[in-house]
Computed example of a mutant assay.
Amino acid sequence: MDRFRRSLIGYCNYYCITDNTQSVNKFRDKIGYLLFKWLNRRSQRKSFTRGKFRLFLNKYPLPYARVKINIYDLRKGID
C-alpha cells in the first residue's frame, strides 16, 4: 500500500496544475474503486464490505489533489 500511495502522490505532483485538480480527484476516486474491486478478488468470498473498506482507507488514506503549480502566477512574472 505504501508503494501504491507513493505512485499516486507522484501522479498528483506531475498533473496537479491550475484547473486540473478536479480531473485528478476523479482519477483518485476511480483508483479507490479499482482498489476496492482488486482487494475483493483475493478470494471467492468477498472480503471487504464498503464499511470495512472505509476503515481500511482511514488507516491508509489516498492523497487528495492540491495545486502544485499555478500557471496564472507564472504569467505575472513575465509582464
Rank of each mutant, 00 (worst) to 15 (best):
D2T: 14
S7W: 06
L8W: 07
G10M: 07
Y11V: 06
N13G: 01
N13K: 02
Y15K: 09
Y15I: 01
C16E: 04
T18Y: 05
N20Y: 09
N20E: 15
N20H: 13
T21R: 02
Q22L: 09
Q22G: 04
S23N: 14
F27L: 09
F27I: 08
D29H: 08
K30G: 02
K30T: 11
I31K: 11
G32F: 00
G32E: 10
G32H: 00
L35D: 05
L35F: 07
F36D: 01
W38K: 14
L39K: 09
L39G: 03
N40C: 03
R42H: 07
R42A: 05
Q44G: 15
K46D: 10
K46L: 06
S47H: 01
R50L: 13
G51F: 07
K52S: 15
F53D: 06
L55I: 14
F56D: 12
L57N: 02
K59R: 12
Y60T: 06
P61M: 02
P61R: 00
P61K: 02
P63T: 12
P63Q: 09
Y64N: 10
Y64P: 07
A65K: 00
A65P: 05
V67H: 00
I71L: 15
R75N: 06
G77F: 08
G77P: 00
I78M: 11
